[in-house]
Measured scan of single mutants.
Amino acid sequence: GDWICPDKKCGNVNFARRTSCNRCG
């Protein structure tokens, strides 16, 4: 399913099809 970026500065939910965090950094 969808997953949350492990980066504390991010924390946005990513679609399951993504293999990396979206809009992190």
Rank of each mutant, 00 (worst) to 15 (best):
G1Y: 05
G1F: 07
G1N: 10
G1K: 12
G1V: 10
G1M: 12
D2L: 00
D2T: 09
D2N: 12
D2C: 04
D2I: 03
D2W: 03
W3A: 02
W3Y: 06
W3N: 08
I4Y: 00
I4D: 05
I4C: 03
I4P: 01
I4W: 02
C5D: 04
C5P: 02
C5R: 00
C5Q: 00
C5V: 02
C5S: 02
C5T: 00
C5Y: 00
P6W: 10
P6F: 08
P6I: 13
P6L: 12
P6C: 07
D7G: 05
D7K: 03
D7H: 08
D7W: 03
D7N: 09
D7Q: 13
K8M: 11
K8H: 04
K8E: 08
K8A: 12
K8G: 13
K8W: 09
K8F: 06
K8Y: 07
K9Q: 11
K9F: 04
K9N: 10
K9M: 15
K9G: 11
K9H: 12
K9I: 08
C10M: 04
C10Y: 02
C10F: 02
C10A: 03
C10I: 04
C10P: 03
C10E: 02
G11I: 03
G11P: 01
G11A: 14
G11F: 06
G11K: 01
N12H: 11
N12I: 06
N12S: 09
N12G: 06
N12K: 11
N12P: 00
N12E: 13
N12Y: 13
N12M: 04
V13H: 04
V13G: 07
V13F: 09
V13C: 05
V13T: 14
N14C: 03
N14G: 02
N14T: 04
N14W: 00
N14P: 01
N14M: 04
N14L: 02
N14K: 04
F15R: 10
F15K: 14
F15T: 12
F15D: 14
F15V: 14
F15H: 07
F15Q: 11
F15E: 15
A16Y: 10
A16G: 11
A16N: 10
A16K: 10
A16F: 12
A16Q: 13
A16P: 11
A16I: 09
A16H: 12
R17A: 15
R17V: 12
R17F: 13
R17S: 15
R17M: 12
R17N: 14
R17E: 14
R17Y: 11
R18E: 14
R18T: 15
R18Q: 15
R18A: 15
T19P: 09
T19N: 09
T19E: 05
T19W: 05
T19M: 08
T19Q: 06
T19H: 09
T19C: 05
T19L: 09
S20P: 04
S20L: 06
S20R: 10
S20H: 13
S20V: 08
C21A: 02
C21K: 00
C21D: 07
C21Q: 00
C21T: 01
C21G: 02
C21H: 00
N22F: 11
N22C: 06
N22H: 14
N22I: 11
R23T: 10
R23Y: 05
R23D: 14
R23G: 14
R23A: 12
C24F: 00
C24L: 01
C24W: 00
C24I: 00
C24N: 03
G25E: 06
G25A: 05
G25H: 09
G25Q: 07
G25F: 05
G25K: 09
